[in-house]
C-alpha cells in the first residue's frame, strides 16, 4: 500500500469516490424507488417523493375492466411459450449435441442471428400477413407460436451447452441396463440438465412477459391484450398518462417475474453458459 503524502488530499479523494458511487447508485435506484412509492401515493408525480399513503390506486385498478384480465393473458402467453420453448429446445439441443451433422455449428449461429429478426420489427409485416393467412390473428396460439419461434434458437444454443457437458456414458450406462430412449431422456438427461431447463424457462417467461410488439400487432380484441399492451392504454380523459394507474399496474406487473426468479433460483440455482445471459 502506498501512503499518500497529504492526509487531507487522501480524505478528499475518499469523499469524492464515495460521492460518485452514491450518485451512480441513486441514478439507477430512483426508478425502483418510484415504483415502490408511487402506487401508494394519492397524487403520484414523475418525481420520487414520500407518499401521501393510500390504497385507492389498487381499488381503481381492480375496477378497470382490462387490467386484471391482462395479467391472466400475460400468464397464458408466457406459460404457453415457456412450455413450447423448453420442450422443443430440449429435444433439439439433445439431438444436436449427440448427432454429428455437417454444418451443425454454422446452422446454430445462423439461426441465432436470424432469430432476432423474427421477434424484432424487421419482419413485422410478413409475420402479420402470414398469421392472417393462417387465421392466427387475434388468437393466443398465434402470438405464442411467433414468440416461440423467435426464442427457440437462443434457447437451443443455451441448452446445447448443458447437453454437451453431460457425459454420454450416463446414457449408455442406462441403455445397457435396458432403458428405452424416452426413459433415458426422462430418468437421466432431463434431471441432469434441470438447471439448464429452469434457466431457459425463466428466460422465456421474462422475454414474453415484457414483449409489447407481437401481442400488440396480433391480438386485436382488448380483452385478450397482455399486461405489456394494456399498460399503454392508461391515459386520463385529458390525454395525460394516468400515473396512478401506470405505477400501480407496473408494480403488479413486475411482481410475478421477480417472484419466479427468486423461486427458481432458490430451487435450481442458475448457471449461465456460452457467454449468454438473460
Amino acid at each position: 500500500m502506498r501512503t499518500p503524502a497529504n492526509p487531507a488530499a487522501a480524505l478528499l479523494r475518499g469523499v469524492g469516490v464515495y460521492l460518485l458511487v452514491a450518485l451512480t447508485l441513486a441514478f439507477f435506484a430512483l426508478p425502483m424507488l418510484w415504483l415502490a412509492s408511487a402506487p401508494f401515493d394519492k397524487h403520484p408525480g414523475i418525481t420520487v417523493s414520500l407518499p401521501d399513503f393510500t390504497l385507492a390506486n389498487f381499488e381503481r385498478l381492480w375496477n378497470n375492466p382490462n387490467a386484471v384480465d391482462s395479467l391472466a393473458s400475460s400468464l397464458i402467453l408466457a406459460g404457453g411459450s415457456a412450455v413450447l420453448v423448453v420442450g422443443l429446445s430440449a429435444l433439439a439441443a439433445y439431438a444436436l449435441s449427440r448427432v454429428h451433422i455437417r454444418g451443425r455449428d454454422g446452422l446454430l449461429y445462423a439461426l441465432l442471428l436470424l432469430s432476432s429478426i423474427v421477434t424484432g420489427t424487421a419482419a413485422m409485416v410478413p409475420i402479420f400477413l402470414l398469421a392472417a393467412e393462417l387465421d392466427l390473428v387475434d388468437s393466443y396460439l398465434g402470438v405464442v407460436l411467433v414468440l416461440t419461434g423467435g426464442l427457440l434458437p437462443a434457447a437451443i444454443f443455451i441448452l446445447k451447452d448443458f447437453m454437451d457437458t453431460t457425459p454420454r456414458s450416463y446414457e449408455e450406462s442406462a441403455r445397457v441396463f435396458g432403458a428405452s430412449p424416452l426413459r433415458v431422456m426422462k430418468d437421466i438427461v432431463v434431471p441432469v440438465v434441470r438447471p439448464g431447463l429452469a434457466t431457459v424457462g425463466v428466460w422465456t417467461v421474462a422475454q414474453v412477459w415484457g414483449n409489447f410488439l407481437i401481442p400488440f400487432l396480433l391480438l386485436r380484441s382488448p380483452d385478450k391484450s397482455p399486461a405489456a399492451v394494456v399498460m399503454y392504454t392508461f391515459y386520463t380523459e385529458g390525454g395525460q398518462p394516468d400515473l396512478a394507474l401506470i405505477s400501480t399496474f407496473s408494480l403488479l406487473y413486475s411482481l410475478p417475474v421477480v417472484l419466479m426468479f427468486l423461486f427458481v433460483s432458490r430451487r435450481y440455482g442458475f448457471r449461465f453458459h456460452g457467454g449468454i445471459k438473460a
Binding site: 457425459p167 449408455e172 442406462a174
Partner: peptide, 11 residues
C-alpha cells in the same frame, strides 16, 4: 457394463 468414468447418475 462399468464405464471408465463409472457413469454414476449424479442426481
Amino acid at each position: 457394463m462399468v464405464f471408465q468414468d463409472y457413469a454414476l447418475f449424479p442426481h
